[in-house]
Design a protein around this nucleic acid. Structure first.
Lengths: 337, 337
DNA sequence: AGTCCGTGTCGAAGCGCTTCGACAACCTAT
DNA sequence: ATAGGTTGTCGAAGCGCTTCGACACGGACT
């Protein structure tokens, strides 16, 4: 294990000089700098993380709390996590992975121990129990997702209300007057995860504005659940010609079931999905969809956080503008015959 | 920020005593211990991670390198990562998330800086360039996946060779004599990720033993790729009645396409999948499958690693026994008519 | 010539913890 | 009673780094 002191000796300078070469916090003559850098390379020196953290009270680590539930919108979570991790590296940070399991205690532990300099929370509930802790500490944090009360917090999220509105708009413009919304799993609503409710809000209010009828049903993933839900929907509103699906895991089942019933997409029914790009493209019908920009969310969150760490950047709510991509799953509503 | 010294003062003992209460490395009288513990609670003390790491040269952090590619077997990766993280906590460790992006440098950085005490590598290639580094350091590590040469390494993986064998066996026993294997994406084979090749090995050798004909085709995920692949397979081997699918993303497309061609599952063709339990259960047909035990792999890997950190535990290769669960997608081969 | 300032370097203190050796106090076996 | 062993506690020395103040030096001013 090579130490700063050894590098200093090798380069014929003092330890502090080496430190300043590394941090750039004081000016160093070109000659000295080069000599030091050469020594560092030659000896294969890596600064000791613990010592650094102790002396500077900065760990250069960012904590990322991901939800424990591995059964929901997994690819999105993963993509966000990866985006956070890779972006973090470009700013000199590493990422500590915390699962929701510990709950609020994890926040206490991390801030208390100086393990991380800042944290990113995913899967934020409307009234999340971790929020008071975040407000009560001066450790910077960013939420991915939107709680009910965002005062004093920095949040990054897709604008799900606008997303909902966009979907309705698209279908309405095509002449659909009866739209069914296949929502997330009931558990998601029960947990009051904001995004699902906000999507619904956006759907409903735009539907009302446009005079479109909306029927919303939560739905678990998988074929069986989707079959039951679809049957109920069509029973209650046989005139339904447009679908908005928010549960990734229900997308493919819905398409298959519709097809199976002899309803052609998009001739008889149109389907808009709210899902990652990849799902929309790989589905059995190229889906008109609003993409969930997981990568962008992760990157954004991290960059906001770094800004806060560097003293720039206020608390603010960043809502990413949704974009609807028209593909092959939507078309004009069938004319009433 | 409460320090050890403050706790010591509050409890009326020396700093070292508090430290020993915390670590349990020396015996402490019950009275003293209780007093100290009370002070800790009262003051809300959390040991400083950096100081601890510096003094003890142990960070209590485990690095987890996950693949960068977010488009492949994502749920499996995520589940492993979560299992690693939660299991780590039960042993007092935290998990640092590294993406493959940095490549071998990440290994150098982490071992060099003492950022982590040990590491877990996922997505190991047969001849992975990180392996020499691992062998050259005394930092413990565990691979999830199996490289070509496992000497001096600890590896945890599903026994994919046995998995392949199991699939063929099951189909053969049902009377299928012509089996098509829908493999992972071509890119996976090109990267020489061991598991895909080992599965194929197992499939082939058992097929030969049982006198079954095998046709293997790599296949990207999604409908289009699957459609092309399936057409080729059926063209080349019209007598195919059994399928083994290894690419999660191809499962549903395959089922849909078969159905679309009027081939009933399992009456006309049988399908065995190698995929996470959830995929098998949620598919449009309940799939006979060999589960990829992601959680178990993550937990196992972590526990091996902790064992090594504690001086117990040798280098060894742990192959998890595959289990085939019969569901509704396989049945007797149609009698030749 | 003397003063002032900016630049580059160094020494030393200290971050909060672990751990080693020392030692007082007590208990047991002679 | 005395030697020998436990048991519980303390003080002090670092772990490897950052950072502050000091200072030497040379150039640009009066």
């Amino acid at each position: 294990m090579v130490t700063l002191a050894e590098v200093a000796q090798h380069a014929g300078v003092s330890a502090s000089t080496v430190s300043y070469v590394l941090s750039g916090k004081r000016s160093i003559s070109t000659g000295t700098r080069q000599r030091v850098e050469e020594s560092i390379r030659e000896l294969g020196y890596h600064p000791n993380a613990g010592a650094r953290a102790l002396a500077s009270s900065r760990s250069n680590i960012i904590a990322l709390m991901i939800p424990l539930r591995t059964d929901m919108y997994v690819p999105v979570m993963m993509e966000i996590a990866i985006a956070v991790a890779t972006t973090a590296r470009t700013h000199g940070y590493d990422v500590l992975l915390l699962t929701g399991e510990e709950g609020p205690d994890a926040v206490r532990r991390v801030t208390g121990s100086g393990l991380a300099d800042a944290m990113i929370l995913m899967d934020v509930e409307l009234d999340d129990e971790r929020l008071p802790l975040l407000r009560g500490t001066d450790q910077p944090s960013v939420l991915i997702g939107l709680p009910a009360d965002t005062s004093g917090l920095t949040c990054v999220d897709l604008d799900f209300r606008a997303t909902g509105a966009l979907c309705v708009e698209h279908l309405a413009k095509l002449g659909h007057r009866d739209i069914a919304v296949i929502g997330e799993a009931p558990a998601v609503y029960e947990r009051h995860t904001g995004f699902a409710e906000r999507t619904l809000d956006g759907l409903r209010s735009r539907a009302q504005e446009l005079g479109v009828r909306l029927l919303h049903r939560p739905c678990d993933g998988g074929y069986d659940a989707m079959a039951v839900t679809l049957a109920r929907v069509l029973d209650e509103r046989p005139s339904t010609t447009g679908f908005v699906v928010q549960n990734e895991q229900a997308v493919e089942p819905l398409l298959a079931l519709l097809r199976q019933q002899g309803r052609a997409i998009p001739e008889d029914v149109s389907v808009v999905a709210i899902c990652p790009e990849q799902v929309a493209v790989q589905a059995s019908v190229r889906l008109t969809s609003v993409a969930i920009p997981a990568q962008e969310m992760g990157r954004h969150a991290l960059e906001r956080l770094v800004a806060k760490l560097e003293g720039r950047g206020e608390d603010e709510v960043v809502l990413i503008e949704p974009e609807l991509t028209v593909r092959a799953s939507t078309g004009p509503a069938p004319s009433v015959s």
